Simulated assay, not measured.
Amino acid sequence: MITVWTYDWVPNGPRGHVRDIRLRWALEEAGLDYVVKSVPFDGRGPDHIARQPFGQIPFIDDGEVTLFESGACLLYIARKSEVLMPRDGKGEADVTQWLIAALNSVEMVSVPWWFIDKPGQGDNPLGGWLRSRFERLDAALGDRDWFAQSGFSVADIMMADTLRVPLKRGALDTYPKLIAYVERALARPAFKKAYDDQLAHFAAGDRARAS
Results as ranks from 00 to 15, higher is better:
W25P: 00
D206F: 06
P40F: 03
G127I: 05
A139G: 10
T174M: 04
P40T: 05
L167G: 06
G120D: 05
G205V: 03
R188M: 04
A72S: 13
T96D: 08
H201K: 06
H17N: 11
K90M: 11
W129Q: 15
K37C: 09
I100N: 07
L67E: 01
D8S: 03
N104F: 10
A155Y: 13
I77W: 03
E82M: 10
V10Y: 03
Q56C: 07
F41E: 08
V182H: 07
A102K: 00
P176Q: 03
Y195C: 06
V111W: 13
A194G: 02
D47M: 10
A187I: 00
D161N: 15
Y76G: 06
D123A: 15
R209M: 07
W129N: 13
G13L: 15
D8V: 08
W129G: 05
L172E: 04
L172W: 02
R209S: 10
M159N: 01
Q52Y: 03
D196G: 11
D62G: 02
F115I: 11
D20M: 02
D197E: 15
R22L: 15
G13I: 04
R136A: 15
G13M: 14
V65T: 14
G91Y: 07
D138W: 07
L103W: 03
A78R: 11
W114A: 11
H48P: 06
C73V: 06
A194K: 05
A102T: 01
P125Y: 06
R131N: 13
L74T: 00
K193P: 03
G31P: 00
G127L: 13
I77H: 03
V165K: 11
L186T: 00
L103A: 12
E64T: 07
P86E: 10
G170C: 04
V4K: 02
M108R: 14
L23T: 14
Y181K: 02
P11H: 09
R209T: 00
Y76R: 09
A208P: 00
R24G: 07
Y7N: 05
R22I: 07
S211M: 13
D117H: 14
Q198G: 04
D161G: 15
V39D: 10
R79M: 09
F59A: 03
L74H: 00
R207V: 13
D8G: 10
P14Q: 09
H17K: 12
E92F: 01
L84M: 10
T174W: 01
F147D: 03
Q121T: 14
V109Q: 04
G142A: 05
D47H: 09
S110R: 08
I157D: 02
L99W: 04
R144N: 12
